[in-house]
């Protein structure tokens, strides 16, 4: 989740709150696909492709129109963010309309019984191992694409300085759509994996997804909005701290601690752990 927010931020400078909605929608689409295709391993990449297409569509229709209408001042900076918030509500309502407000179940494709070493069973199970490997692979691929390829260079340039990128001959608007598409795919994967790795239950008002949004955003800020490894590191730190709080103190404190951590990072190191200072200046 944090990865996909950083992706949109890096390629378009928009904080995309609808990301959670898209992840939720993707999880539902994943559920529908599993039901129809009957195979999780086909449904997952399909849902990612649909997530990418949907995300690109949103950028193409909504963000471009907004940019056309307001090109300067405070409105231009805020309108896209508010629009993504509105979209989040819209997606939730639509999901409720299509699939109803009750639970649907998305079954985990792998065993969730922990690995056994002789007599002891550890918490790590095939499903969570897969999720971990998947996230690491995704991060590596995305990092390589961003840092080493021409497309990645175009994506970064368009985010840092759209006008200069344009003068250099980059088709900035197309590159933005691509950035959203990649983020949409990552968000779809996050939505589905989160669901199957958790309880497997989905509802439009799913608390888990609200948490995913809030924590994804916090993790992205903690790690540095500029940096992909930062997003993963942020998610790890946040996860560890919250788990510790939950186990040793109280589950009720999780939210409070998460926000305190966010504020602390914003005060002490506003560019995030791995964010660079140069990123803020431009």
């Amino acid at each position: 989740m944090a990865i996909s927010m950083v992706l949109v931020w890096r390629s378009t400078r928009v904080v995309n709150f609808a990301q959670a909605g898209m992840a939720l929608l993707s999880a539902y689409i994943g559920y529908e696909l599993v039901a129809r295709v009957g195979n999780f391993w086909i449904a997952l990449p399909l849902a990612m492709i649909l997530g990418a297409a949907f995300s690109a569509f949103i950028e193409f229709v909504l963000m471009r129109t907004l940019q056309k209408h307001s090109t300067q001042g405070a409105i231009a900076a805020i309108a896209p963010i508010i629009a993504t918030l509105g979209l989040l509500g819209l997606i939730r309502a639509t999901i409720g309309f299509i699939w109803g407000h009750g639970d649907v179940q998305l079954q985990a494709p792998l065993s969730k019984v922990g690995f056994k070493f002789g007599e002891t069973t550890i918490i790590m199970n095939p499903m969570s191992l897969f999720v971990l490997l998947f996230v690491i692979t995704l991060m590596l691929i995305v990092s390589i694409v961003f840092q080493k390829t021409n497309i990645g260079l175009a994506l970064r340039a368009s985010a840092y300085a759209p006008e200069i990128a344009q003068l250099a001959g980059i088709r900035v608007s197309g590159i933005r759509t691509l950035g959203w598409a990649i983020a949409g795919a990552a968000g779809a994967a996050a939505g589905i994996l989160q669901t199957v790795n958790g309880t497997g239950a989905l509802t439009p008002e799913s608390l888990e997804f609200s948490l995913l949004l809030v924590f994804g955003f916090i993790a992205a800020v903690i790690g540095g909005l500029e940096s992909l490894p930062g997003a993963v590191l942020g998610a790890l730190i946040l996860g560890l701290v919250l788990a510790a709080v939950q186990i040793y103190i109280s589950g009720a404190l999780v939210f409070i601690v998460a926000f305190l951590l966010l504020l602390l990072v914003l005060i002490v190191r506003p560019q995030g752990f791995l964010g660079s200072k140069a990123g803020r200046r431009a």
């Binding site: 260079l153 340039a157 006008e163 200069i164 003068l167 980059i170 660079s276």
Partner: peptide
């Protein structure tokens, strides 16, 4: 037709070589 806009139009977060490569990506 290439334009160098006012105020040193380079992208500070990219390396020298990346800035140059950018101009020839197309």
């Amino acid at each position: 037709v290439s334009h160098v806009s006012e105020g040193k139009s380079v992208i500070a977060q990219l390396t020298v070589e990346e800035n140059l490569d950018l101009g020839a990506l197309w």
